[in-house]
Design a protein around this nucleic acid. Structure first.
Lengths: 191, 191
DNA sequence: CAGTCAGGTTAGCTGCTGTTAACAACGCGC
DNA sequence: GCGCGTTGTTAACAGCAGCTAACCTGACTG
């Protein structure tokens, strides 16, 4: 059944990736065995090789998907009236909705192969450039390097949410958004 | 020679821990072999067991040392005139001077044994409490949970420096300090 | 000068983990 | 109903990494 195949096949893969992301986030890439991932989706170990070439391939697909989603989302907000505010809201939402992915992306880039790492890095760079653009549009006197460093700092700020998660989604989003804005606005005074 | 022993023995251990920290930070705990660590200090593999009970023990000692240093440093600034500013400066300095330690601490808590992890967590909590205190003294209308979440967010902001490192130590310190302050000051407006 | 001990070395074991092989069952098109 | 592709299963393999054992050496100490 072509319909069933087109939807069911990928669904299985995504189910596996979701489970793997959760496990990777809590135990680290090397701390998770192939059997653990299998067990998490109700099948046993080697069956995963029907869906992925290798364990590395899972991580690779996971990380490229994340960087693609971030860039696509950012790209989409580029033309908004207040791009910076939109980018912040977008990133905050992503971090709150996908804490595991945030953690995995932060920690496991090094475990990718050279070529995959390059691909992910390139996409991340593009995403950062969207932020640099938005920051410099908002605080014009900001230098490019400063804006880039500031963007990374704001990522760190927002991406901290998987480690705290104290306030419930709504108030957490408000807090992070306000703090991110406050941090960036401080660039105006400094220089 | 007692003098030589008192200084040389620990020096070796610290040399090993330094090397291990750097390796762990770049390749991840499981990505580094005992032989790699040995090679990094000019001895070969199993010789490390003259200095540490196990590879886990190295990580354990590393992480407890970090949390102890942070808490001690924070504690020392508690009575300052402007504790928040002092805490920020302290943490920024620590992060800029010890990027590898920051990364290792962020990523490898999960690889500790139950008891070691508890010890580190407890010390981290105490450190956070210093920040909560300082934040609420500066922005009195801040709730405790909000302050805690804000503290974590600022850690994320400052701890981002190992991943960017674009501006050179002095300007980086300025930037992070300003952004951290700006982020915290935004708490006043929000509530 | 003899003995001890800290701090190395290399060889080897053991357990774990990613991966593959060989086989089974189920659903579907012809 | 027959074959075949998909998606499982379990058993086994291979390689690696942490750790131990056995041995060596050089510097102090009595």
């Amino acid at each position: 059944m072509t319909l069933a195949e087109d939807t069911a096949r990928p669904a299985r893969r995504e189910q596996i990736l979701d489970a793997a992301a959760g496990l990777f986030a809590t135990h680290g890439y090397h701390g998770v065995g192939i059997d653990d991932i299998g067990a998490a989706v109700g099948i046993s170990g080697p069956a995963l090789y029907r869906h992925f070439r290798s364990k590395d391939a899972m991580l690779s697909e996971m990380l490229t998907a994340i960087s693609d989603r971030l860039w696509a989302g950012g790209q989409q907000r580029r033309a908004a009236e207040d791009p910076l505010r939109e980018l912040i809201a977008f990133h905050v939402d992503f971090a709150l909705d996908n804490p595991a992915l945030i953690v995995v992306q932060e920690r496991n880039l090094a475990h990718l192969t050279e070529s995959d790492r390059k691909r992910v890095r390139a996409q991340q760079r593009r995403y950062v450039e969207l932020w640099v653009e938005a920051i410099r549009a908002t605080i014009p006197e900001t230098g490019e390097l400063t804006a880039r460093a500031a963007a990374h700092a704001v990522f760190g700020l927002i991406n901290s949410t998987p480690h705290s998660r104290l306030l419930g989604r709504g108030r957490m989003a408000e807090l992070l958004t306000a703090m991110a804005l406050g941090a960036i606005e401080s660039l105006a005074a400094g220089d």
